[in-house]
Design a protein around this nucleic acid. Structure first.
Lengths: 216, 216
DNA sequence: AAACAGAAGATTGAATACAATTCTGAGTTG
DNA sequence: CAACTCAGAATTGTATTCAATCTTCTGTTT
């Protein structure tokens, strides 16, 4: 699926990204260049470039002469990111509803079925299916920059979704929202698909915030 | 206003950014690391990091083993970017209308006056005043990530606004839109400020597209 | 005993050096 | 005469080396 990283910086960035997103490296942890280089069997320059990439993605922050640390998110950041995602998701949904083909509908129906088949307890599997479902809609929208921005924003909050366990609990609500999204997609109603998609993001954000508040 | 770049990569990135945005380096131009390094009196590693930064900002694209080139935009890119900006500007405007203080209103009034005082022919001066006006509204919204994203998107299309001369011509329309924005800001009406701000972005996009179409 | 000053170690930042790939050109061949 | 091949040059990618700054530990002083 994902092509093998062509350069060492890309490789290093990929490794660090999955480690951070997977929760192996906690927020606030210093990212020591020499350690990373030695651990991955490369030298420091490619590590430095990889860190610049992560900086651009918002996953690491640089304090001059003091190195990088894994970026941390507070509640305000979550609110901000989900606010943005609401608007962009609505935008993409409206475009997707206008451009969708019969094949797109069939594909999305299949992805929805697959997601329905997954048990509530299989969080990782559900997250993957969920990701595929939404990514397919974005693909229909046909806006590469928009897609990249959404993926980046999603990535940034994803690790908190995991630790906060925001996906657990009332799965019935999530499933109902997905069915509503598919129905509007099938109907080709831009306004409706836009609003249900936006509502879906908003409700996801609310669940995450609630989970985070409870977690502290 | 802008603090001096703390590191060499930041310095190099700033230099390249202004050169690209100012039109000194055309789209598609290869960015040779050695040339840039020699011209700015630094070595290649910091140049490489700077290019990674520009890559993240969408101003340069990397073709593995073949170096970086200045990113180019076609009409579809412009449509996409302005579509995103419409939504994000509306979002920010709604937030700004809710959070504004008396001091914010006074500041924005002053910025509007300054912009009104600039002659139509002084494109650079008008662009700067325009930028300050909109940046002040975003500041009121109080969303740093949203601000960064908007600045990046604005930057990306700015050079085309310049070459296309999209700001020239019917300045009366632009000025009227700015007055409408200020009025809604002063009134503190989120829905109205959102819609007029979004319409302003949309009309700017239409003008740019028309100018680009005419230019070819 | 607590706080500060100083020195040693560690870590980042930048420059130089080396390796590998790609582009360019001339020469040759079909 | 066009197209292909091969060699040299140029450029990117990576590693190693050096310099500057920050952190931390220790010793001293108040």
């Amino acid at each position: 699926m994902t092509p093998p990283p062509s350069s060492l910086p890309d490789y290093v960035a990929t490794q660090l990204r999955t480690a951070i997103l997977g929760g192996q490296i906690a927020a606030g942890t210093p990212l020591r260049q020499e350690d990373i280089a030695q651990q991955l069997g490369v030298s420091r320059p490619p590590v430095r470039e990889a860190l610049r990439l992560l900086e651009g993605e918002g996953l690491a922050v640089l304090r001059p002469r003091r190195g990088y640390v894994v970026a941390s998110l507070d509640a305000a950041d979550v609110v901000e990111i989900f606010g943005i995602r609401e608007r962009l998701e609505e935008h993409a949904a409206e475009l997707a509803a206008m451009h969708r083909t019969a094949e797109d509908i069939a594909d999305l129906a299949r992805l929805l079925e697959e997601m329905e088949a997954i048990e509530d307890r299989d969080l990782a599997g559900f997250a993957a299916a969920n990701h595929a479902f939404h990514a397919r809609i974005f693909q229909v929208a046909g806006r590469p920059r928009l897609l990249r921005m959404m993926l980046s924003l999603r990535e940034t909050v994803e690790r908190y979704v995991r630790v906060g366990g925001a996906l657990s609990g009332d799965m019935t609500v999530v499933r109902a929202e997905h069915r509503a999204i598919f129905a509007a997609f099938e109907a080709g109603d831009p306004a409706r698909l836009g609003s249900v998609s936006r509502a879906h993001v908003a409700s996801t954000g609310r669940r995450l915030l609630a989970a985070l508040a409870q977690h502290d």
